[in-house]
């Protein structure tokens, strides 16, 4: 990150989001402010309906706040066009979804290479980087397998490789272990730990306390507001 901006990867300033359903206005987020430093491992916890999905969408530039300012890697992303947001998502954010969201017809490496297709990376380089990312998550021997031929834990690791392949500023994981058995959950969480140890900034959204406990910092959200800041683990 640029020196002038310090080590902050993202900064939210009084971010609010309201949805209009008919005549009713629902406030999903109310004036949320926090920052994330480079190399942090942050968990965002909250019960369903608390607004954590909305927060995740805004952090991921999938949605824009109704008011407030969201800066990602030094850039104010509020008020950008859809095409500009798409480019930011492509370059800055690596998504890991609960449902894995792999394309069933593509082999593992082509799933991983997908974000590179949208950044205009040459074909040969795409494959090279995809294979390297798969090796990074321990699936170097599964590059030509289709998602249907992989276990749930392996599929999620493919998804993590896809999130890493663009070398994003932020890895954004939305309930990454929600669909996994306990062994695979442990695999995936250990992988996230390793990635964080090697300097990757991670924001993890979960409603499970033992998953959140892996993070160094936990934000609790309830009724669209941040409750308090809890620091756990080694501390940041």
């Amino acid at each position: 990150m640029s020196a002038s901006w310090g080590s902050q990867i993202l900064r939210l300033t009084e971010v609010s989001k309201t949805y209009a359903t008919g005549s009713l206005e629902v406030a999903a987020l109310r004036e949320v402010s926090f920052t994330v430093e480079a190399g942090e491992y942050l968990a965002i916890m909250g019960p369903s309906g608390s607004g954590k999905s909305t927060l995740m969408h805004i952090l991921g530039c999938l949605d824009v706040p109704t008011s407030g300012v969201y800066e990602l890697a030094g850039q104010d992303v509020t008020g950008l066009s859809e095409a500009e947001l798409a480019e930011i998502r492509n370059a800055r954010i690596g998504f890991v979804f609960q449902q894995f969201n792999l394309l069933p017809t593509l082999s593992a490496w082509r799933n991983v290479a997908l974000p590179l297709c949208y950044s205009g990376t040459p074909a040969a380089e795409r494959r090279e980087r995809a294979v390297a990312a798969l090796e990074r998550v321990g699936l170097g021997d599964r590059i030509d397998h289709r998602p249907g031929e992989l276990s749930g834990g392996q599929q999620q690791r493919v998804a993590i490789a896809r999130a890493l392949v663009t070398d994003p500023s932020l890895l954004l994981a939305d309930e990454p272990t929600g669909n996994l058995d306990s062994a695979s959950t442990e695999d995936v969480l250990r992988l996230l730990d390793e990635l964080n140890d090697s300097g990757r900034t991670i924001a993890l959204i979960t409603h499970e306390a033992d998953v959140a406990a892996r993070a160094r910092r936990t934000l609790r959200i309830r009724d669209g507001r941040l409750e308090d800041l809890v620091t756990s683990g080694v501390g940041a």
């Binding site: 991921g60 999938l62 859809e82 095409a83 798409a86 969201n101 974000p115 949208y118 896809r162």
Partner: peptide, 16 residues
């Protein structure tokens, strides 16, 4: 629709 959403999340512009 999910594939479209995924592609958009991964950086596909509306034009793409």
């Amino acid at each position: 629709i999910r594939e479209i959403g995924l592609r958009k999340a991964l950086g596909a512009t509306p034009r793409a």
